[in-house]
């Protein structure tokens, strides 16, 4: 099938489900409802890269980097060398002050250098992140720093907040297209509603891994499934996983959650 060696996701059980890991250089979607564990898994994916000496980039569109840093502390991962790009738009001003698009010169910050407190919107100008400027910025960064792994957290935020004047479906597709052209292995998180339709972005990548969060009498049960994986075989069943002190652990030993 594919000659290229697969790369590991950082979650052993998931690698098993993916029959070895991810085909490198492609974009993948990690979907799930709020609170299902997407950000944790995506940081695990980057940590795996860091351990192998790869350059990794986390593009934060949902939470400020200082919070990401604090949140990940509990796992005791060494993320010092992780590059974090703060792509959270500033507070919007409604007065006619200059609204700056995120500069194409903007630099990611090393995790170790991120402060404890949130970055404040400057008084006289606001930074706005648009999909266009972000793409431009990534283009520069990818050339300059040759990242091997990139996480976009989340593509939903990108769609909701950064595509004001763009046609969303087309723009998302072109963004994804851009990522695959740049040959970086990327993981894009996607927020799912608790019920109902899966947003169309889910179908655009080379693979989609979905985190499920279900509630029963004993609490929240979490499951992961590989919905789609082009160019590779994979497990069809849905497997349970837990968020432990050392991150996400998929249980592939026990029987699949709902095998028929």
């Amino acid at each position: 099938m594919i000659a290229a060696a697969k790369i590991r996701t950082g979650v052993a059980g998931l690698d098993k489900m993916l029959h070895g890991g991810l085909v490198p250089g492609r974009p993948y979607i990690l979907s799930g409802a709020p609170g299902s564990g997407k950000t944790i898994l995506s940081v695990q994916f980057l940590r795996e890269g860091l351990e192998g000496g790869e350059r990794c980039l986390f593009v934060a569109l949902e939470e400020p980097p200082n919070e990401l840093k604090i949140n990940m502390r509990a796992f005791r991962w060494n993320l010092d060398d992780l590059d974090v790009l703060d792509a959270n738009s500033d507070i919007r001003r409604f007065e006619p002050t200059p609204l700056l698009e995120i500069s194409t010169e903007e630099e990611p910050i090393k995790m170790r250098a991120i402060g404890e407190r949130i970055r404040k919107t400057p008084d006289f100008e606001s930074k706005e992140v648009t999909v266009h400027s972000l793409q431009q910025l990534l283009k520069n960064l990818l050339v300059k720093k040759s990242y091997e792994r990139v996480v976009i957290d989340s593509i939903t935020a990108l769609k909701y907040f950064c595509m004001r004047e763009f046609e969303t479906a087309l723009t998302t597709q072109s963004f994804m297209r851009y990522l695959s052209e740049s040959k970086v292995t990327s993981l894009l998180t996607l927020e799912l509603p608790e019920e109902g339709e899966v947003p169309p972005e889910a179908f655009l990548a080379r693979g989609e891994f979905r985190l499920h969060k279900l509630r029963d009498e004993t609490g929240i049960k979490r499951f992961v499934s590989v919905e789609k994986y082009k160019g590779s075989s994979h497990e069809e069943a849905v497997f349970p996983f837990e968020i432990t002190n050392s991150g996400i652990v998929v249980n592939t030993v026990s029987k699949p959650a709902m095998a028929i």
Binding site: P34, E62, T156, A157, E191, E194, G196
Partner: peptide, 10 residues
Amino acid sequence: RTVLETEFFL
């Protein structure tokens, strides 16, 4: 529940 509200995921 089928709509993803901004404040919920942010």
